[in-house]
């Protein structure tokens, strides 16, 4: 994306005004930043409190004593009887964590692969109906999820996929968004490289793997992060598809912990922290990809 341009900025104000104004800006932005971060801080602080201190008014700011064991307790918050790849797991929250990682990684890998393949076809191959097909693809971006949700559920019911991993994963393996996103990037890759590879005896699959994919790494990284975050955070589709605790993803597990014993906040807050921390880590370490990708396309994480 466009890098920050010094030129644009200097023209805003003359130099004399600059110093005074920037103090105001720092003041407002820092105050705002505190408001943005305070709820997260409160979540972390609360997660270390014991049942006695959590309901104190005036509230106890710094947890004392620090209840580290909340973070041990939480993993077995709900008892399940699950079998994942032959390993017997009884700790419900742990199982949900594994499910979330498994589903998010699988969907991300599948969706990015099919999107890249589709984007390659739409940007690099010549065939009949290509542009008409692409246009109809674009139109599906307008169709809101609520329309396809019910028939897709009915389909899963007939396939026997309700309450299964397939039901969670397969509908997410193809994405018009992803295809469109990567195509925009692929068409900007110069054709010369491709021609050179063709002369060297590369077929289309070879060009896809050895020319396009390596050059498109930043775009692929961006799409992977978006997809991972949206699957990790997704609530409605898992809520529709999954019933049994051993198949739940983390947002679903959070939801069912809530009702369980009249909302035990000493479990819920550490659980929320554990759900949010991977998201924050992925975000912080890929900050550049995310903000640039969103500025570019308006996609939401």
């Amino acid at each position: 994306m466009v890098d920050f341009q010094e030129k644009t900025v200097v023209s805003f104000d003359n130099i004399a005004m600059k110093k005074r104004k920037f103090i105001v800006e720092y003041l407002i932005l820092t105050t705002g930043a505190i408001f943005m971060l305070a709820p997260f801080l409160w979540m972390v602080l609360t997660s270390f409190k014991g049942p006695g201190n959590i309901f104190r008014i005036p509230p106890q700011w710094i947890p004392r004593p620090i209840h580290w064991e909340n973070y041990v307790k939480v993993w077995s918050a709900l008892r399940v009887d699950a079998n994942f790849l032959g390993i017997h797991i009884t700790q419900g929250f742990l199982m949900a964590f594994i499910n979330s990682v498994f589903v998010s990684v699988t969907v991300t890998f599948g969706q990015v692969l099919t999107s890249a393949m589709g984007a390659f076809a739409f940007s690099r191959l010549k065939f009949k109906l290509r542009d008409k097909l692409f246009l109809s693809y674009l139109l599906t971006l307008m169709i809101p999820f609520q329309v396809t949700m019910i028939p897709t559920f009915v389909l899963l019911k007939y396939l026997g996929w309700v309450d299964t991993y397939q039901g969670l994963i397969v509908p997410g393996l193809v994405s018009a968004y992803g295809t469109f996103f990567l195509r925009q990037f692929f068409i900007s890759i110069p054709r010369d490289l491709e021609d050179a590879a063709t002369i060297d005896g590369c077929n289309k699959l070879g060009i896809f793997r050895h020319v396009i994919l390596p050059l498109a790494k930043p775009a692929i990284a961006t799409l992977s992060i978006f997809t991972f975050l949206s699957v990790w955070n997704d609530f409605l589709w898992p809520l529709v598809v999954i019933n049994s605790p051993e198949k739940m993803t983390l947002p679903l597990m959070l939801n069912s912990l809530r009702g369980l014993h009249s909302t035990d906040w000493t479990i819920l807050m550490p659980a929320s922290v554990i759900v949010v921390v991977p998201v924050i880590l992925v975000y912080i370490f890929n900050q550049k990809f995310i903000t640039e990708g969103i500025s570019l396309t308006g996609l939401k994480g």
């Binding site: 971060l37 955070n233 759900v275 949010v276 924050i280």
Partner: peptide
């Protein structure tokens, strides 16, 4: 400022 946008709505 962007942090809450990416974090899990349920949490």
């Amino acid at each position: 400022y962007f942090l809450p946008v990416v974090t899990t709505t349920v949490a």
